[in-house]
Amino acid sequence: MSNLEKLLRAGEFAVTAELGPPKSADRGVIEEKAEILKGFADAINITDCQTAVVRLSSIASAAILTSLGLEPIAQMTCRDRNRIALQSDILGAWALGIKNILLLTGDHPKFGNHPEAKGVFDLDSIQLIQMVKQMKEEKKFLNGEEMKVEPKFFIGAVENPFAGSLALRAGRLAKKVAAGAEFLQTQIVYNLEKFSRWMELVREQGLDEKIFILAGVAPIKSVGMAKYMQKKVPGMDVPEEIISRMEKTTDAKAEGIQICIDIIKALKEIKGVKGVHIMAIEWEEAVPEIVRGAGLYPRPSMGEN
């Protein structure tokens, strides 16, 4: 069992962070970022060619983290692999010692640096979750063939409470739970009011008892970044109040970190939220400060696996 799963099952408020692999074959970048994050998160997400930009592979990066003594959460999208490649990589990831996996649809190739690429999407994220669960619990491939050694991943999913109608999004979470997702990381929360309403729907369906929900947070670097996310990033909901806090400050980075800390403190009070996922991509240095500021340091350890 992964450290993350043990902590969540023990009722600890979990902290995960995110590490974006480099756009090169440089292992050193991963080592440097890992050094910053070490001790401040229970597990580290490794993105899988995020926004459809080619980067060092998530599974390879996760294996490097494992070798450095950190616990990775390998992300895997449906965008670039068919069901043969997905299953093959799932086996490979487990064999490399990776224990957490986060399964998602993936951004459309249009947003990336190879917009000419054919998007695969042979499976969708719900089918992928179901497939990994079947491999884990029934020791069977998607086609029903049996395997001798199964990959026993702690299965994660994502959900965006801010995309489409709340009822639709809560319904989709129910489907992910039914498919076999065990933990959930949400889209970045800035709109606490809307997130709380989504959590209400989640609790009404009893879903918070069936899946560990980690709310996504991210520090804002500048007012420009806040406005960009508000206007340009699909599926993001940045309220005016955040923009105005960023506009008024003279130290944007410090204020961005403080907003993030304030949001984490508020999230901790929402029933059913079992942890936070801090996304500070290309600003990993902010993570220790946020974790300390939110009173979440030091991190508990469940001992060696």
Binding site: D124, Q127, P234
Partner: peptide
């Protein structure tokens, strides 16, 4: 659906529009 999903929508659906 730009991704041909059978269990959609994905997280990129915003106010009834596709992320694309």
């Amino acid at each position: 659906c730009a991704k041909g999903l059978l269990n959609g929508p994905c997280g990129g659906s915003q106010e009834g529009k596709c992320e694309v």
